[in-house]
Design a protein around this nucleic acid. Structure first.
Lengths: 145, 145
DNA sequence: CGCAAGTATATTGCGCGCAATTTAATTGAT
DNA sequence: ATCAATTAAATTGCGCGCAATATACTTGCG
């Protein structure tokens, strides 16, 4: 077998391992997030809002590495669920200002247990998780720009 | 700030780093795969077929950690592109036997350069990539089952 | 043999991701 | 002040992922 052939073997693909782990992660979160009526990405967006109370679509896109094509419909769904408001900025009418409703704020209490449960499900220790996170961020940084 | 609050900070999320890196990886592959007229997942499936020439949907699902809901339409698209055939097994008519067409076999030549280019784009060394792959596989294993 | 249980794949429906385009508001150069 | 260029968000369209269900074929038990 040539080196070129080895490079095309599924078992040798770092990216496929990453992709599969990411999918498995999403599947693992789902039952935990069902009680909150959130998908994984919706949970991420709520996490941003629990931290900073107000954000526009562009800034949210920068934080999540996603664009309005993904975020606009997602935010509409969060609005329908009653967790966020989608107001327009007064200074600049192009800008959507996203804020939490009281239900959205309250949801944080229920969310507290999610990271703990997930940590448990991962069955990995802190060193391994830290290492994984660092390597992922490094790759993300290298591939972006 | 409480420990519970820290656990809900976006910057502390291993899974979000994994998720973002996986998305970035998919975006990075896209221009490389455009010449082959393949998406990333289609490329993965082709990779399986370049290795073993013939597979059914269940076995393909086991290898890729995906189900027929994802694979059936994907395989139909690969068939439409002229890269695979979707025959029925003679011994058991429930089973779809997927094989490469000559165009599908030929595509491997063009694909040879993809892993090399991707390795370059990642800007990571072998130790880092090996470590990332191992950690992803470990997490995948722990979350699956 | 007959039919209930099991198995392989297909279908449906929803929520992403993302490229490409569109719409609407703002800015800046003349 | 005007209007071309820029910017923010929304829209469109396609291909996943995946849960849930349906369909069709096979197997095994009485």
């Amino acid at each position: 077998m040539t080196k070129q052939d080895e490079y095309l073997q599924l078992d040798n693909q770092v990216c496929f391992a990453l992709y599969s782990a990411s999918n498995a992660m999403g599947r693992a979160y789902q039952p935990l997030l069902k009680a909150l009526d959130l998908t994984y990405l919706q949970y991420i967006v709520m996490m941003v809002l629990w931290e900073q109370k107000e954000i526009n679509v562009k800034a949210l896109g920068a934080k999540t590495h996603l664009d309005s094509g993904t975020l606009t419909p997602l935010l509409k769904r969060l609005e329908t669920k009653g967790y966020v408001l989608r107001a327009r900025s007064i200074e600049d009418e192009r800008i959507r200002v996203i804020t939490l409703t009281s239900a959205g704020i309250k949801l944080k209490e229920q969310a507290q247990k999610v990271p703990v449960e997930m940590l448990c499900l991962s069955k990995m220790n802190i060193e391994e998780l830290t290492s994984l996170k660092t390597l992922c961020e490094q790759l993300l940084g290298n591939l972006t720009k």
